[in-house]
């Protein structure tokens, strides 16, 4: 197990390094943005003295590297800092919304991942048939349409024509789980339509790639049925590429929900991000971006570890 631990520590260290680089990129890009919070908040008529005093209060007069260290250092210790505009702790601003975003993404993932893998297996099993082609065309169509459009189509269909689900996914803080699922169903479905195609096609391609290998022919010559061939003999060997694509799509579900959240007026991170950019609340934007990056890195770390665990060559050495 020693080498597995080393692999894990290696990946973790690489993840932290990536996070560091990303934090630099985020901080520097925000530094380069034109505009100034003090000016924005106090208005055009503010005197230079007032502006200076305001900047001092917020720590904006400090040199960039000091501010960076304070921010990133705080982030690593779990202190996300305060909003420039409202002065409230950022954690209080985003915790509810972060939870909402994860809830929506998780909901969409629960539908899309099993669906994508299942469709991938089915289309590999019935490859080059009408069924396979229909699945491909359907998922490709879904991915080719912009997500706001998919959102509106679903709203029209399920909220207007057949009033099955609400068109707006606004949540009260004490909503029950059932109510949450009911209200987030349409945004989750929108996201599902967006991410399924990629995962499904990767599943299909990975499986079909394996079918040409001698051990699959061997299984066939041992008398395995088509279904057994794909599910029992091929699928365990295709886990690594499939999981990699799933991780990318899960990360997209969390990071890429901005538009869908806006369409459904869903109180998630996306809306907060849009609002904060408009208000030039840079500390909130920075922190939200870094949280997204951390999520991305975490998912990739997890997919690496699952890939390693699915490979007997790495798991059981000679």
């Amino acid at each position: 197990m020693h080498h597995l631990l080393r692999l894990f520590v290696q990946r973790l260290a690489l993840g932290l390094l990536t996070l560091f680089v990303v934090s630099l990129v985020i901080f520097l890009s925000i530094e380069l943005l034109p505009g100034d919070v003090a000016q924005q908040v106090l208005g055009q008529s503010a005197t230079p003295e007032n502006l200076a005093a305001f900047r001092r209060e917020l720590g904006l007069d400090q040199p960039a590297h000091t501010r960076y260290l304070a921010w990133f250092g705080g982030f690593l210790q779990g202190d996300l800092g305060n909003s420039l505009i409202s002065g409230l702790p950022i954690w209080d601003l985003i915790s509810e919304r972060l939870y909402n975003t994860f809830f929506l993404a998780g909901f969409a993932a629960l539908i899309s991942v099993p669906l994508a893998v299942l469709l991938g297996v089915v289309s590999a099993l019935y490859r080059e048939t009408l069924l396979d082609k229909s699945i491909n065309v359907a998922t490709l169509t879904a991915i080719s349409v912009p997500e706001f459009f998919v959102g509106y189509i679903l709203v029209w269909l399920f909220a207007v024509e057949f009033a099955l689900f609400p068109s707006i996914a606004n949540l009260s803080e004490d909503a029950s789980l059932g109510d949450r699922i009911y209200r987030t169903f349409l945004p989750a479905l929108t996201l599902t339509l967006i991410v399924t195609a990629h995962m499904m096609r990767m599943t299909r391609a990975s499986l079909i790639n394996l079918l040409a290998l001698p051990y699959i022919e061997m299984a066939q010559l041992k008398g395995a049925s088509q279904r057994r061939l794909i599910v029992i003999h091929a699928l365990p060997n295709a886990i690594a590429p499939i999981v990699t694509v799933i991780a990318i799509n899960l990360a997209y579900l969390i990071v890429g929900v901005v538009i869908v959240e806006v369409v459904f007026v869903y109180p998630g991170m996306g809306q907060l991000l849009v609002d904060s950019v408009a208000k030039r609340d840079f500390t909130v934007v920075q922190t939200a971006c870094l949280l997204f990056a951390a999520t991305y890195i975490l998912f990739n770390l997890a997919s690496d570890l699952i890939s390693i665990a699915s490979n007997p060559r790495l798991l059981h050495r000679k």
């Binding site: 290998l213 001698p214 051990y215 299984a219 010559l221 003999h233 060997n237 007997p312 060559r313």
Partner: peptide, 12 residues
């Protein structure tokens, strides 16, 4: 088969 190394499923 000719190559047992390639004809055994690596996952089992």
């Amino acid at each position: 088969a000719q190559s047992a190394a390639a004809s055994f499923n690596p996952a089992f």
